[in-house]
Design a protein around this nucleic acid. Structure first.
Lengths: 326, 326
DNA sequence: CTGAAAGCGCTTACAG
DNA sequence: CTGAAAGCGCTTACAG
C-alpha cells in the first residue's frame, strides 16, 4: 500500500487517521492508491496498537422470555444498530439472562473487547450496571438506573409526563374509577408511571384508591392476571391505565372474559406504542415512546463517553396516541 | 504472564491453544498463573496472526418494518446469540435494509471482520447470499436460498410437511372449502407452504380452486387485506391456512370485521408458532417451527464451514400445535 | 510535512 | 516437550 502510493507507511497511516500533517499531494496519492487497490485497514492490527476495539456492545439483561415476547427490545436493538452503522461501528449483541451469563459477559467486556456498552434492561436492580461502572467501562443505560445516580449516563422517556397525559385523557372522557396496572416497582418505568398516575388523579380531583392499583411484570400473562384481580377487587372500575402495551394486550383478554366491552364499559390505555398496540382489538390508545430518538441518543452519549465526556442524561418527551380502546 | 508461570511465551501460547505438546507440569503452572492473574488473551493480537476474527455476523436483509413486526427474527437472533456464546464467539448484528447498506456491509464482511455469516431473510431474491458465496465467505442461510442450490449451506424446517399437516387437520375437522394465504412466492416459505397446501388438498380429494388462494407478504396488514379479498372472492370458505402467524393475526381481524366467528364459521390455522400465536383471540392453532434447533444447527453448520467443511443442508421437522382457532 | 524505527501481544515454524 | 526468534499490520513518537 505504501509502495503503491509512493510514500511511507507512516504517511498512509496519517491519511487513514484524519489526514493531518499530510501534504495535499501525498493525500491525493494515498487516496488514489486506496481506491485503486480496494485497500481496507486491518482492524486487528490497529486495535492492537490503539487499545480500542472500535466496536460496542448491546447488552440485554432480561430473562429470555421477555426478549422473545416484548417487541420494544427489537425496536431498540434495530435503532442502535442503525445509528452505529452510520459511524461504521459494529454492534456486538450480548444477552445475559442469568448469573452465569452475566459473569461470562462481564469478563468479556472488561477484557476490552468492546469500547463501551449500551445497557438495556427494565430492571434496575440488576448488578451489571454497577459492575461495569466500577470497571470504568463507558455505559449508557436505557432508562434511569435506580440507585446509581449520576454515575451512569442514560436516556429515558418522560414516563411520568406520559402517564399523566394518559390519565388526563381517560378522565377527560368522563371516567371516574380509573385503575392502573403497573410495571415492576423495582424498575424506573414501574415507579415513574405509577407516580404520574397518582399525580394526575389528584390533579383531576379523583380520590386515590389502592384497590385500583395492581403491580405486574410487563408480560402479557401478567397483565391478564392483574386485570382479573382488579375486576374482582373493584368491579365498578370504568377505565384502566396499563403501564405497557403488552400487559394491555393481556388486560383486554381478561376484560373480554369478564364480558366487559372496550371502550364502552372500560376504557383502556397502554404505554409504549409498540407494535403490540396495533395488534389488539380494538387498537390501543397509548403513550408513544420515541424509540428512534432514544436509540440515536444512546449511541450519541456512548460515543461521547468513550471519547471521555462525563456521564449525562437525556429525557425525551412522550406523546398520547389516540386509537379506539379509549 | 510467561514470567509469572516460569515458562516461555511460546509455551503459554500452546496451553492457550489446546495444550498439545506441553508437559503436565508446564500446563499446570500456566493454568495456575492464569487463574492467579486473571489473564485474558488479547484477541486483536491473536487475530492479527491467525487472520481470523473469532466472531461471526448475523445478517438480516429485510426492510426495517419486518424486523420490528415479526417476532420470528428476535427468536432466531436470540437462539444464535446463545449458541455462539457457548463457544465464546461474539455475534455482530448487521441489518441491511437497502442497497446502500448491503454494499457497506458486504465490504465490511469481505474485509475479514467476521469469519462467517448467518444469513436471515425471507426473500431469496436478495443478492447478498450470492455475493458472499462468491467472495468465499462461509455462509449458512435460514431456509433454502432459491436458485443457489448446493453452493450455500442452510437450515430449514419441513415447510411442505407442516403445511400438509395443517391442511389435513382442517380437513379432518370437516372443512371442505379450505383457503390459503401464502407468503411471497419468491421466498422458499411462500413456495413450499403453498405446495404442501395443494398436495394435501389433492390427497384429501378436495377440488383445487384458485379463488381460494391469495398471495401476501408475511405482514399483519397483508394478512388482513388478503383475508378480505378471499372473503369477497369465495364467501363460502370455511377454513383458511395462513402461512404465518402474523398474517393470521391480520386475517382474524378481517374475519371479525366480516362477522365470521372463529373457529365456528371459519377455522384458522397459522404457521410458525411465534409469540404472535398466543396473542390472538382465539389463540392460534399453528405449525411449530423448531427455532431453537434451527439456531443451534445454523451455528453448528457455520462453525463447520469455517473449519473447512463443505456446505450442507439440514431440514428439521415441524409439528402441529392445536389451540382454539381450529 | 515525512520517513525510519520501535513496539503493540500474540502464534508458529524452527532448532534443540 | 520447550525456548528463542521472526513476523502479523498497524500507529506513534522521534528526528529531520
Amino acid at each position: 500500500m505504501a509502495r503503491e502510493a509512493g510514500v511511507s507507511r507512516g504517511t498512509v497511516s496519517r491519511v487513514l487517521n484524519g489526514g493531518h500533517n499530510v501534504s495535499p499531494t501525498a493525500l491525493a496519492a494515498v487516496n488514489a492508491a486506496i481506491r485503486r487497490t480496494g485497500y481496507v485497514v486491518n482492524r486487528h492490527a490497529r486495535s492492537l496498537i490503539t487499545g480500542r476495539s472500535d466496536s460496542v456492545g448491546f447488552l440485554l439483561t432480561e430473562p429470555q422470555e421477555r426478549f422473545f415476547e416484548d417487541p420494544n427490545f427489537s425496536v431498540l436493538l434495530r435503532g442502535c444498530t442503525q445509528a452505529l452503522a452510520a459511524h461504521d461501528i459494529p454492534l456486538l449483541l450480548m444477552i445475559a439472562g442469568n448469573e452465569a451469563e452475566r459473569r461470562r459477559i462481564t469478563r468479556y467486556i472488561t477484557g476490552g473487547h468492546v469500547d463501551g456498552v449500551l445497557l438495556v434492561s427494565s430492571h434496575s436492580g440488576n448488578p451489571m450496571a454497577e459492575r461495569l461502572a466500577k470497571a470504568q467501562i463507558p455505559v449508557v443505560a436505557c432508562g434511569e438506573p435506580l440507585g446509581l445516580g449520576g454515575q451512569i449516563a442514560y436516556v429515558g422517556a418522560d414516563e411520568r409526563g406520559g402517564a399523566r397525559a394518559m390519565v388526563r385523557h381517560l378522565a377527560a372522557g368522563g371516567r371516574r374509577r380509573i385503575a392502573t396496572i403497573t410495571g415492576p416497582l423495582d424498575t424506573p418505568g414501574g415507579v415513574q408511571r405509577l407516580a404520574g398516575y397518582r399525580e394526575e388523579l389528584a390533579a383531576a380531583g379523583l380520590p386515590a384508591d389502592e384497590a385500583l392499583i395492581a403491580e405486574s411484570d410487563y408480560s402479557r400473562a401478567g397483565g391478564e392476571a392483574a386485570m382479573t384481580a382488579l375486576l374482582r377487587r373493584a368491579p365498578d372500575l370504568d377505565a384502566v391505565f396499563v403501564a405497557s402495551d403488552l400487559m394491555a394486550q393481556g388486560a383486554l383478554v381478561a376484560l373480554e372474559h369478564a364480558g366487559r366491552s372496550v371502550p364502552h364499559d372500560v376504557a383502556v390505555g397502554g404505554f409504549d406504542d409498540s407494535p403490540a398496540a396495533l395488534a389488539t382489538r380494538p387498537p390501543l390508545t397509548t403513550i408513544r415512546q420515541p424509540f428512534d430518538r432514544i436509540s440515536t441518543e444512546m449511541v450519541r452519549l456512548l460515543l461521547a463517553r468513550i471519547a471521555g465526556d462525563d456521564p449525562s442524561a437525556v429525557i425525551l418527551p412522550t406523546e398520547l396516541v389516540r386509537r379506539e380502546s379509549s
